[in-house]
């Protein structure tokens, strides 16, 4: 049986970690490589970097971050953000990343999923989906461009299509839950987990270890992702993992 994974997400801009990082025991808390290495030591099962650089220079810096990270950590890591071509995927995988995350680019050009999956293997391709409940439809809608743009696409249908096109994994962010710290969106997560047969990383809303327990048991997620609660030490990864283990969840 596979262990449920705990994944911290780092937002990186021009090679620096952004969004509230509060570590006193690091030489340089803004260095994504140092922070990733710390999370590795603390027992994170995987790391996700989201590159939010706006410039070409920033993207080139990210390649360097990937190369240095691959030399420092002993767990898999994913890089997402602004990747829209197979060539971009190749450069990041070559630098040592294990997986590539694609979001808006996959919605605009779904063939990118097929191309990446055929070239590098399904296990390398993570399709990230930002979903928000649409009350008129009674189901969830896909948003792109960092959650700013509604697409008119139904999330469950899109995720099934992504699976058929060769996605190896779905990073599912609930825009309704994101930032609330009230818990993951269990309805959305379980609906997606029942609809497809590839692993689901649940994201958005984590505030307590109980929330992770719920998303693994009721939500049936394979992995739980969070950012600020880890960065601000509101939850420590070793404590979280011990609590989940005590409750009988398979945890590394």
């Amino acid at each position: 049986m596979l262990a449920k994974r705990i994944i911290p997400c780092l937002d990186v801009k021009e090679g620096r970690v952004v969004k509230g990082v509060n570590f006193v025991n690091l030489r340089d808390a803004g260095d994504p490589v140092e922070l990733a290495a710390l999370y590795d030591r603390e027992g994170a099962d995987e790391i996700i970097f989201l590159d939010i650089s706006a410039s070409i220079e920033g993207r080139e810096t990210m390649i360097d971050v990937v190369r240095r990270t691959a030399g420092e950590i002993s767990i898999p890591f994913t890089v997402g953000g602004g990747i829209s071509k197979v060539e971009d995927m190749k450069n990041i995988l070559r630098a040592g990343a294990d997986k590539i995350g694609i979001n808006t680019a996959a919605v605009l050009n779904p063939q990118l999923i097929n191309d990446g999956s055929q070239r590098f293997g399904a296990q390398c391709i993570v399709v990230a989906v930002d979903a928000k409940f649409n009350p008129e439809w009674g189901e969830w809608e896909v948003y792109t461009h960092g959650g700013r743009k509604p697409t008119g696409i139904r999330a469950l249908a899109w995720i099934k299509e992504a699976e058929q096109r060769g996605a190896g994994e779905i990073l599912l962010t609930s825009m309704d839950a994101d930032g609330t710290k009230d818990g993951f969106d269990i309805d959305l997560t379980s609906a997606v987990c029942e609809a497809v047969n590839i692993p689901i990383i649940a994201s958005g809303g984590a505030g307590t270890s109980e929330h992770f327990y719920d998303v693994f048991t009721k939500g049936k997620a394979d992995a739980g992702l969070a950012a600020t609660i880890f960065h601000y030490k509101e939850i420590s990864i070793p404590e979280l993992k011990n609590q989940l283990k005590d409750k009988g969840v398979e945890i590394r």
């Binding site: 596979l2 692993p199 394979d222």
Partner: peptide, 10 residues
């Protein structure tokens, strides 16, 4: 079970 076998196993 899901294929590929991907993740942490004991």
């Amino acid at each position: 079970y899901k294929i590929p076998h991907m993740g942490w196993n004991r």
